[in-house]
Design a protein around this nucleic acid. Structure first.
Length: 615
DNA sequence: ATGCATCGCGCG
DNA sequence: AAAGCGCGCGATGCAT
């Protein structure tokens, strides 16, 4: 297919910039102005166009089936759609490719060129001497400089693409296309009334609770308090507690190792403090209310986005956001962490005549881990369509635990299966249970949690052995000539080849003292058996789900629908409302089909459909 | 003012 | 020796 590489030069200034706004806000803003665009067809020389010549040049370039290549394609493609009504057939993106090949490194064009062409000084991005910031109309000199940079950027982008494309299997190229399309060709309809109502109510309730809290402490301390910050700032809140003669709980920060206040919702000390001082309820309530601004901010951003996109919400996902290949959210509107069952989730709708289809890959990581480690007992339960949570809970309680009957017991089994697969110890497991991160808080004695951890490890000895084999792999990967099979993987120097040809990378892997670490600066990270086991499991589960996502999108496209979002183990599609059971069952079929490289992997799927993303 | 690190909290 | 992991965003507080 014809390759069209292009790069827009656009107006920006101190406030009107992608640093402060997201792509949608920027491109649809009334201040938007394209100074020029450079366009390269196949391996020809890039040509530069300005003013009225741009539209016709773009039309001519994109008038037949073509693949669009840009550095950050969701920006340039969104311009093409929004301002020129042009739609390329396929999307490629050098920034996405760089994220996959060089995790933890800058994905900027400048840095990418230095990395890909270290010995070729002609392959360098302009040194930004000509800053067009804040300038609406260029003089001739600036115009010529910008033209040169713009042409150079397109030239570089094309060569970066050619340099990297050999490392990308077709499936990953398809994935970059689909990911870009989910953003630049949005399909999710926003229920504006629902969002607006929710935002209003949330804001109102929040204000009332904070006001009540302020009045309460004003009365208590006989000093006037008017600033909500007293509740939101950890420092000020700690000072308030001291004035009230409540001892401020402290903890050791897991990041810095230094003591800090333990005032988070999930901090056990803070939870106890609230129980012991229930007469200060208005304060605790106000603290919680003031901390939950995210909901309103996000609602406002959804409304603004939809206003700019004909009522639609583009789904921004960062390809290879995690070094394991998982997506991450992006564009200041993370659709991967919307609260389950929330109004905001329910405000994401299908257009009239269509439905939102949501299909989850059931316990994909637990299944992948059992398959990788060849933990037969667990695979047997999955294969028999049993419930692994009940199965393990039965071992804990020495009696059959029945789903829907022994709910508390099954829940403990669930926590253990979800938590203990990557080497978690008894202390942390006890805290996790007590905090109730997965559901209702559970308090167990030290000897009880230790017993469960020991039981998990003995009942799943192949999994604990797999951690050790991963530990060995951490060491082997430090060998320059490493190259050996490890199940479906190939261990190489500082990287692991995945079955789709991509790599799980550990740049600068080395031994420091008794620890193995990789990365540098703020990316320096410890790695060890249990953690590598988790990374591998996550990377493989991601490949299973994204390949299924491509298959599901093919299917949905055939019935006039599409995939519109992915949340790690969950595919979200929008498709016509006719024969909904057939549609969702077809999605389940796709998600129950294991990949060729793991034909014995027992998969299952569940989900449903509705006129919105409610699940 | 603006950048950066940290915390808290949402998701898987 | 022992260790669950992977993200993004808003708010805060400190440094520049």
């Amino acid at each position: 297919m014809k390759l069209v590489t292009l790069d827009f030069e656009t107006y920006y200034d101190k406030d009107y910039t992608l640093r402060k706004m997201n792509t949608i806000e920027y491109v649809t803003d009334e201040r938007f102005k394209a100074h020029g665009v450079s366009i390269q067809i196949n391996d020809g020389a890039p040509l530069y166009f300005t003013g009225d010549a741009m539209a016709s040049a773009l039309r001519a370039a994109l008038d037949e089936p073509c693949t669009l290549i840009c550095q950050n394609t969701k920006f340039d493609a969104f311009i093409l759609h929004h301002h020129y009504g042009l739609y390329p057939t396929r999307y490629a993106d050098t920034r996405s490719m760089a994220k996959a090949l060089f995790p933890f490194e800058s994905a900027s064009l400048k840095e990418l060129c230095i990395r890909l062409f270290p010995d070729d000084d002609t392959m360098r991005k302009g040194d930004e001497l000509a800053d067009s910031k804040g300038i609406l109309d260029f003089d001739d000199a600036l115009s010529q400089l910008i033209k040169g940079y713009c042409i150079q950027d397109t030239h570089l982008t094309y060569h970066c693409y050619q340099q990297m494309i050999g490392h990308f299997p077709q499936s990953e190229q398809d994935l970059i296309h689909l990911t870009t399309k989910m953003f630049v060709e949005p399909a999710i309809v926003l229920d504006r009334e629902r969002v607006a109502a929710h935002a209003a109510i949330s804001a109102e309730q929040r204000t009332a609770l904070i006001e009540h809290g302020l009045t309460f402490i004003t009365d208590q301390l006989e000093t006037v308090y008017e600033d909500p910050k007293i509740f939101s700032s950890n420092k000020q809140f700690a000072e308030l507690l001291t004035l009230l003669k409540v001892k401020v709980p402290s903890k050791i920060s897991p990041t810095t190792g230094k003591p800090t206040h333990a005032l988070g919702k999930t901090d056990l000390g803070f939870q106890k403090l609230q129980r012991d001082n229930s007469d200060y309820e208005p304060i605790w309530t106000a603290r919680k209310a003031v901390k939950s601004t995210g909901e309103v901010t996000r609602a406002d951003r959804l409304l603004l986005t939809a206003d700019r996109c004909r009522g639609l919400i583009p789904a921004a996902l960062n390809y290879y956001g995690a070094h394991t290949g998982r997506y991450s959210g992006g564009e200041k509107l993370n659709l991967q962490n919307l609260k389950r069952g929330s109004e905001l989730r329910k405000s994401l709708c299908a257009p009239k005549g269509s439905l939102v289809y949501v299909a989850d890959s059931s316990n994909i990581e637990a299944r992948m881990l059992a398959w990788l480690a060849d933990q037969r007992s667990m695979l047997d339960v999955f294969n028999a369509k049993g419930d692994v949570y009940c199965d393990f809970a039965s071992k804990i309680y020495h009696r059959p635990i029945i789903k829907g009957v022994d709910n508390a017991e099954r829940f403990l089994g669930k926590c253990a299966v979800l938590g203990l697969g990557y080497g978690m110890g008894a202390d942390k497991f006890r805290d996790t249970l007590k905090m109730g991160a997965l559901g209702p808080p559970v308090s167990l004695e030290q000897h009880e949690v230790q017993g469960i951890v020991d039981l998990y490890r003995s009942a799943n000895s192949r999994i604990t052995e797999y951690w050790k084999r991963c530990q060995n792999a951490c060491a082997a990967m430090q060998n320059k000539h490493a190259n050996f099979a490890f199940g479906p993987l190939i261990i190489e120097h500082q990287k692991i080849k995945l079955p789709n040809g991509m790599y799980l990378r550990y740049p600068d892997l080395r031994t420091e003292g008794r620890e193995t670490v990789y990365g540098s600066g703020r990316h320096k990270t410890k790695i060890y058996g249990g953690k590598l086991c988790e990374n591998i499991t996550q990377a493989l589960a991601r490949i299973v789900v994204t390949d299924q996502m491509l298959a599901a999108d093919d299917y949905l496209t055939s019935i006039d629908g599409r995939i519109v979002l992915q949340v790690h183990d969950e595919l979200v599609g929008i498709a016509p409302q006719a024969n909904p059971d057939q549609t969702i069952n077809k999605m389940y079929d796709i998600m129950r089909t294991p990949p060729v490289w793991a034909s014995a992997l027992p998969l299952d799927a569940e989900g449903g459909y509705a006129d919105n993303y409610s699940k």
